[in-house]
């Protein structure tokens, strides 16, 4: 891929990733990984790692914007956040032991089910 084309894809991809991540308060990483991996041709593991680095500043900036708009609940954030951190460590450790393709299929089905529920039945 030409350097110019690559830059154009990065800018366009960044626009999409940033918008989605700010609008939905997440999900930018799930778009950034295929951008790096499928569009720009980076290997899978570096794509995941680099996507995290790209998402971090957007998440911080978006979080600040949300909080200053009044979308903030300290108690809930601390309780859920504690669970997220504990779960995150467990998940990282479990990753080596479980069959990840089975988990991603189950996870995908869960996402589809939750998506349909929210889009049509709420």
């Amino acid at each position: 891929m030409k350097k110019g084309t690559k830059k154009a894809f990065m800018i366009l991809g960044g626009i999409g990733v940033g918008f989605i991540n700010g609008f939905f308060g997440g999900g930018g990483g799930m778009l950034c990984v295929p951008l790096l991996n499928k569009v720009l041709g980076e290997k899978t593991k570096p794509s995941h790692a680099t996507a995290m680095l790209i998402i971090l500043p957007i998440s911080i900036a978006s979080a600040v914007t949300y909080v200053s708009s009044g979308y903030f609940d300290l108690k809930l954030t601390l309780i859920v956040g504690g669970g997220v951190i504990a779960g995150g460590i467990a998940g990282a450790l479990l990753l080596k032991k479980l069959n990840s393709s089975v988990i991603s299929i189950v996870f995908a089905l869960l996402m589809i089910a939750a998506g349909i529920k929210l889009a049509f039945f709420s």
């Binding site: 309780i79 859920v80 956040g81 995150g88 467990a90 998940g91």
Partner: peptide, 22 residues
């Protein structure tokens, strides 16, 4: 809340976008 957070965290820790599930 803690359980829901942990489930999101587990998926996130596996690098599968836990936020979209949380």
């Amino acid at each position: 809340y803690i359980i829901v957070g942990a489930v999101g965290g587990i998926i996130g820790g596996m690098g599968m976008g836990g936020g979209t599930l949380l």
